[in-house]
Simulated assay, not measured.
Amino acid sequence: MPDSSPLPPSRRSRRKEARPAEVIEAARDLFISRGFAATKLEHVARKAGVSVGLPYLYFENKEGLFKAVVRQSILPQFQMGEDLLDSFTGSSEEFLRGLARGFWEMEQSPNAGLSKLVIAEAQNFPDLARFYMEEVVLRGRRFFARILRRGIERGEFRPVDVEQMARVIAAPLSMLSLWNHSLRPFEPDPAAASAESYLDAYLDLVLNGLRAEPKDRTP
């Protein structure tokens, strides 16, 4: 009896299915290295190894391609963190520590530098800045707010203005990202200004400010 199972996709069809992701990856690299304004779709096509007109088959324009870059590069990281928080059984302090370390690990990925790009281009491309604010910044704040509410409800954190505290906690991590992609190579003493020591100081300040009871308090 002949085998009726479907044949695997041909190399050509697999290549076709991979093209949108390849275009997005090429665009991400060029946006970060050249900037949004200086990157043209023909540059993206050339880097992705596709015809000049092919990006237009998948993306309406350069702005649409940028949005796809953000949605593919950053938003899955948010989803992973949110899913982890849903099932996390440890303390909220432990979660914040892991989140800060995970943020720095993400800074080592090819996706790092997108936040600096948006800040640099925000005044010239307000629609893209607004998109990034809604899709990334506000989602990040909501995520921090969830962690804070969890800690308060469990008696781990003292009561605070959750919305404002979410901004306060997020801002130093954003600053670390900007520093990493701008002034870090010019630090006179790189060892003293390492990201690890920065995160240690950040966590010490944040967690000591949030704890419901100081750890060294005696009964």
Rank of each mutant, 00 (worst) to 15 (best):
D3M: 01
S5W: 05
P6N: 09
L7S: 12
L7M: 12
P8G: 10
P9E: 12
R12K: 11
S13W: 04
R14P: 00
K16R: 14
E17Q: 09
E17M: 00
E17H: 03
A18N: 07
E25C: 00
D29C: 01
D29H: 08
L30V: 10
I32D: 04
S33Q: 11
F36G: 00
F36L: 02
A37F: 01
E42K: 13
V44Y: 05
R46K: 08
S51I: 00
V52H: 12
V52N: 09
G53S: 15
L54G: 01
P55V: 11
P55I: 08
L57M: 06
K62I: 07
L65I: 08
K67Q: 15
R71W: 06
I74H: 04
L75E: 14
Q77M: 07
F78W: 12
F78Q: 11
Q79G: 10
Q79C: 01
G81W: 12
D83N: 14
T89Q: 15
G90N: 02
S92E: 03
F95I: 03
F95R: 03
R97N: 10
R97F: 05
A100D: 05
W104V: 10
S109W: 01
A112R: 09
L114E: 01
L114H: 03
L114Q: 01
V118F: 05
I119W: 09
E121I: 07
A122N: 07
A122D: 09
N124D: 13
N124L: 11
N124E: 15
F125C: 00
P126L: 05
D127Y: 02
A129T: 07
A129H: 11
Y132N: 04
V136I: 15
V137L: 13
G140Y: 07
F143M: 14
A145L: 09
R146I: 08
E153N: 14
R154P: 04
G155Q: 09
E156Q: 10
F157D: 02
R158Y: 05
R158Q: 15
P159S: 08
D161W: 06
V162G: 06
V168S: 02
A171R: 11
L173R: 09
S174N: 09
W179S: 10
P185D: 11
F186P: 01
P188G: 08
D189M: 04
A192R: 14
A193V: 01
A195S: 15
E196K: 13
L199Q: 12
L199T: 11
D200H: 14
L203E: 10
L203D: 04
G209C: 02
L210E: 00
P214Q: 04
P214M: 04
D216T: 12
R217N: 08
R217K: 15
T218H: 07
